[in-house]
């Protein structure tokens, strides 16, 4: 078992939740999301994100609109749909529970 694989699996697991979390704070286009995920060291390469975004959009959790850009071609601005918002809140609860559980299990008793 390689440590890198496990790390990647962990990151992958929370990636969807993080994307929804970023979008819950405001609309963003793909590069923005990537930038933030990168600075948080959740992803290494951008390629991973595009299929994920499309899948979330296909699941009606995300919506997008086109906006002109002066840096190049028009950009897709993503936002949470009503369904996505509910989804995000539910995930938030799950994450907090999970976080607590992990915290309790792994912290050394003092």
């Amino acid at each position: 078992m390689k440590i890198e694989n496990t790390k990647a699996q962990m990151r992958k697991g929370v990636l969807e939740y993080c994307i929804l979390g970023i979008l819950s704070k405001g609309d963003a286009y793909a590069s923005d999301i990537i930038e933030r995920l990168k600075s948080a060291e959740l992803i290494v390469v951008e390629g991973t994100l595009y299929p994920l975004l499309t899948r979330l959009k296909n699941a009606d959790l995300l919506e997008y609109r086109w906006e002109e850009s002066n840096a190049g071609p028009p950009r897709k601005y993503y936002s949470l749909s009503a369904q996505g918002r509910a989804f995000q809140l539910e995930l938030k609860g799950t994450w907090e529970n999970l976080n607590n559980a992990v915290e309790q299990l792994t912290s050394t008793p003092s």
Binding site: S31, A71, G72
Partner: peptide, 25 residues
């Protein structure tokens, strides 16, 4: 690699747009 993905063409279009952006920059 994306060939089997659902709506793979859309993803590729997104990626091409991103590449265009990076090249432009």
């Amino acid at each position: 690699a994306l060939g089997k993905e659902e709506s793979g063409e859309e993803i590729i279009a997104d990626i091409e747009a991103r590449i265009a952006e990076i090249f432009n920059l």
